[in-house]
Simulated scan of single mutants.
Amino acid sequence: MIRVLLADDHALVRSGFAMVLSVEDDIEVVAQAADGAAAVAAARDGAVDVALLDVQMPVMDGIEATRRIVGTGCAKVVIVTTFDREDYLFDALAAGASGFLLKNADPDDLVEAVRAVAGGHALLAPEATLRVIRALAADVSPAAPEPAPAPPDPARQRIVASLTEREHEVLRLVSEGLSNAEIAQRLFLGPATVKTHVSNILAKTGSRDRVQAVVFAHRAGLAG
């Protein structure tokens, strides 16, 4: 069971997230907080696996709360915010967040983020993924995660050759910043099928998460 902490200064938002997560058999909301300081205390006091934190909260903002929660090893953190701001994204990554989503994300994306982060992976909103990739390409942000080491060209070519035609399509769309749900619509596939393709792509390319897969796609010339 994945134990989740919800922290947002709007009770309606917390209730909405709780409703989305409570229908999942493997996820349980075990604590809620209305400010960053309360979130840190709840993470320290309870057995929490993943904390979903807003950025703009009273007493202590979500970035500082992330730094303290991750720093003490209490839980992994996903930032969920209304504001699509680059400074929030990179500050969150620098503070140790494993995920970054916008509040207008599909409910399935929220569930996927909780499971991915609990499993030791990172998951960023498509918009955030593109910004991280641009920053990596320009080498402008020390907060951006390190890309996977690039294999020698022949090795990379063998990896590319191992991808199926459908996996090529999915990877190209991932590199454009599309979510699994959007890829499913674009390719007329079921969401579960897209998820399987993404998992296969991560395994074949040796990528830890979608961000590294997009880095690989850019290096291999597969990005659109």
Rank of each mutant, 00 (worst) to 15 (best):
I2R: 04
L5Q: 07
A11D: 14
L12G: 02
V13R: 00
A18Y: 09
L21I: 07
S22T: 13
D25L: 14
D25V: 13
I27Q: 08
E28N: 13
E28W: 12
V29Y: 07
A33T: 09
A33D: 04
A34N: 11
G36C: 10
A37I: 10
A37F: 07
A39M: 07
A41G: 08
A43C: 00
A47W: 06
V48H: 06
V48P: 06
D49W: 05
A51G: 03
L53A: 11
D54K: 07
Q56C: 08
P58E: 12
V59Q: 01
M60W: 05
E64R: 10
A65D: 03
I69F: 03
I69S: 02
V77Q: 02
F83E: 14
L89W: 04
F90V: 00
D91Y: 06
A94K: 09
A94M: 02
A95F: 00
S98F: 04
L101P: 05
K103A: 08
N104L: 12
A105T: 13
D106Q: 14
D109I: 11
E112M: 12
E112C: 08
R115H: 13
A116P: 03
A118R: 06
G120W: 05
H121E: 15
L124I: 08
A125E: 12
P126E: 02
A128V: 12
T129S: 14
L130T: 13
L130D: 14
R131P: 01
R131A: 02
I133H: 00
A135S: 14
A137N: 14
A138T: 01
A144W: 03
E146D: 14
P154E: 04
A155R: 14
R156W: 06
V160W: 06
V160R: 01
A161S: 06
E169Q: 15
E169D: 15
V170S: 05
V174N: 05
E176Q: 14
G177H: 05
N180Q: 09
A181E: 05
A181G: 05
A181I: 03
A184Y: 01
G190Y: 09
P191A: 11
K195M: 12
N200A: 15
N200H: 15
I201F: 00
L202M: 11
A203D: 10
K204W: 08
V211P: 00
V211N: 09
Q212N: 11
A213G: 10
V215I: 02
A217W: 00
